[in-house]
Nucleic acid binder design. Structure first.
Lengths: 193, 193
DNA sequence: CTTAACTGCAACAACCGTGACGCAGTTAAT
DNA sequence: ATTAACTGCGTCACGGTTGTTGCAGTTAAG
């Protein structure tokens, strides 16, 4: 289930892998076409070391995608989507996801390869998302006639937009951003009664 | 004002430039790292011909961005953002922009170079967008306390999301999509009174 | 402590993309 | 019809990236 645990890596090797994945995220989010050399330098590692763990460039990318997907799944799970009150779950999940997605923007923006682990994880998260929305609808937070699939897409879009971070919300804490997202999702811009 | 009209091009040359720009959009939207060769082939043109009009690869990219920005500006202008009733303008602009942004997704997604023509056009459009929202607020369509800059970002995000096109809305006409966007923007998902 | 894993370094071959030529042939403009 | 613009083709040099290998030195694990 985990990464690709062919065999337990030695402690230092595992540290290297982590450093490489983190550096890859950092460098590739700035320039998707960056070279292995650049990633290696950013990781404080020789280029050949990367090739030792990840045969092809694409192998690194896929590992990156899987790693990030797993973290995102944790973030959602932590919000107790099935048990917490819908509004609470929605807020908590939103705040958590903002954190993770901010740190792993490139990896999570990658097109999901059909058979990959990342794809499976994302699918599962899509289902959980719908579940939360259904529970919210049952609580009359959402109109009965609303299209939940469209709503989920809107939710994703709001998350993405919040992450771009206009100059205005530099240094604004995650909970505030999450509150704005949830509020916008549920009420839109119309006048409050 | 137009392109980079150093001198009037011959008729056939102008056709070539068009074909190149259109092919570049098509190819690069599928793979941002595609080679000049691929673009040339898609345009039905020799690679050297591209280099004749656009010295560097980046020059092509910038021309592409400018071209698309101009088209987008036309789309907004056509919606009469300053004179038409806000709701009408909003709908019309949305529908128009959906068309243009669908056809020039790559070029419009490009990071705006600080001094470029595209950047100036986009800035101007941002202002016009705020104007429409202000007019809508004056008409009580939008809550008085609403943050119009956040709202504009939400609007952009909804446009972007609609363009990804889930399998559900394949073949749905632009006006329907626009209606959904405007409705979501103004009312969100909450229960209708 | 001893072994096996891990790493950096240097060097290698192979490939691909870029940009620039000149030349010969075609096409629009006057 | 004449001219000037335009294009395709072949070819060139150049630089950068990739992936591999061997070796020597370092480091974790038993």
């Amino acid at each position: 289930m985990s990464g690709s645990a062919g065999r337990p890596l030695r402690a230092d090797a595992e540290r290297s892998v982590r450093a490489i994945l983190e550096a890859a995220e950092r460098v590739l989010s700035a320039d998707p076409g960056a070279s292995m050399e650049q990633i290696a330098t950013a990781a404080g590692v020789a280029r050949t070391t990367i090739h030792r763990r990840f045969a092809h460039r694409q192998a690194l990318i896929e590992a990156l995608a899987s790693s990030a997907a797993r973290r995102l799944a944790e973030a959602v799970e932590d919000g107790r989507p099935d048990t917490a009150p819908p509004l609470v779950a929605l807020h908590r999940i939103t705040a958590n996801v903002l954190e993770v997605k901010g740190a792993w923007a490139f990896a999570l923006g990658l097109p999901a390869e059909p058979g990959s682990e990342a794809a499976a994880v994302h699918e599962d998260m899509g289902r959980r998302c719908i579940t939360v929305l259904e529970r919210a609808r049952a609580d009359r937070l959402i109109d009965e006639a609303a299209d939940l699939h469209w709503l989920r897409r809107v939710y994703y879009a709001l998350l993405g937009e919040s992450l771009d971070g206009s100059p205005d919300d530099a240094g604004v804490d995650t909970d505030t951003l999450a509150a704005r997202i949830v509020d916008t999702l549920l009420h839109g811009a119309g006048p409050r009664t």
